[in-house]
């Protein structure tokens, strides 16, 4: 099943914005991920799918530098290996992604104020930050609830706020871990439009874990499938998961591999 890692090629030159090399992760001697190599171009939207518990969130935590891999490296634009989360990498989780004790507006302002020494903006900077926050809230359709606390918002509104907050920090990559997993189908559809629009505006490089294959193909430029290539029936936990398929999801989501087969059929 070994799929050669597909390299983003631009005029014959490999342009890799996010570079993952020889990545392994195991917990207590139990391998979860193994041999992951990946190159992602700037502005690419990468969907990640796979069975529950196969290590998708673990991969995202490694991308986020929330934990260190057992082996291997992750670099953005060949920069240093990050040792802890920072403003380079934004994240939205399925839940708990906004601060419950801050109003909607303060949650957006936090994306600016948290990076200061004591966590508060100066008097002069505060009003400007509030105005920027209000402009963002207008843009993401939350202006009417600017003074409300997140607990009073619907799930879809909370996730829109979380995405807006993450983008306000201007990260270089944005990580989404099943961001719409807790939403009802209708809300999820409108969130798809929301994410597509924001992505078109910002050109952000995005990694999104989803358990919905259709969602992955709809939003992503690529769909990575995580699975265990090796399998020992006597010891199911002996091997970790890796990227077993790397589909091209552009142009209406025709899987990359099947396209190859079509070529073979045509040439035959």
């Amino acid at each position: 099943m070994g799929v050669a890692p597909r390299l983003p090629v631009d005029g014959g030159v490999v342009v890799s914005f996010v570079r993952v090399r020889g990545l392994w992760q195991s917990y207590g001697g139990r391998p979860i991920l193994e041999r992951i190599d990946l190159d992602v171009a700037k502005g690419e939207f990468v969907s990640i799918v796979g069975a529950s518990g196969c290590g998708k969130s673990t991969f995202l935590r490694l991308l986020l530098a929330e934990e260190m891999p057992s082996r291997g490296t992750i670099r953005i634009e060949d920069g240093p290996v990050a040792r802890e989360p920072g403003r380079e990498r934004g994240v939205v989780f399925q839940r708990y992604s906004v601060f419950p004790h801050l109003t909607v507006r303060a949650n957006v302002v936090a994306a600016e104020s948290f990076a200061t020494r004591r966590g508060w903006l100066s008097r002069a900077g505060r009003q400007a930050a509030r105005d920027r926050a209000d402009a963002l809230l207008e843009r993401i359709g939350l202006a009417h609830v600017a003074d409300a606390y997140p607990a009073t918002l619907s799930g879809g509104m909370q996730q829109r706020l979380a995405i807006g907050q993450a983008l306000t920090a201007r990260p270089r990559i944005l990580l989404l871990d099943e961001p719409f997993g807790a939403l009802d189908p209708g809300t999820r559809l409108s969130m798809h439009d929301f994410v597509s629009e924001l992505r078109a505006e910002t050109g952000m490089t995005i990694f999104m874990v989803t358990h919905d294959l259709a969602e992955g193909f709809k939003l992503g430029d690529r769909v990575l499938v995580f699975d265990k290539p090796r399998w020992d029936p006597h010891e199911p936990e002996a091997f970790g998961a890796t990227i077993t398929y790397d589909f091209d999801a552009r142009h209406g989501g025709i899987p990359y591999q099947i396209k190859e087969d079509d070529h073979a059929a045509i040439h035959a």
């Binding site: 989360p85 403003r87 994240v91 989780f93 839940r95 601060f99 948290f114």
Partner: peptide, 13 residues
């Protein structure tokens, strides 16, 4: 929640 602690760090806290 761990998510909040991580989120704060991604905002530069």
């Amino acid at each position: 929640p761990r998510e909040q602690m991580v989120k704060a760090q991604t905002l530069g806290a």
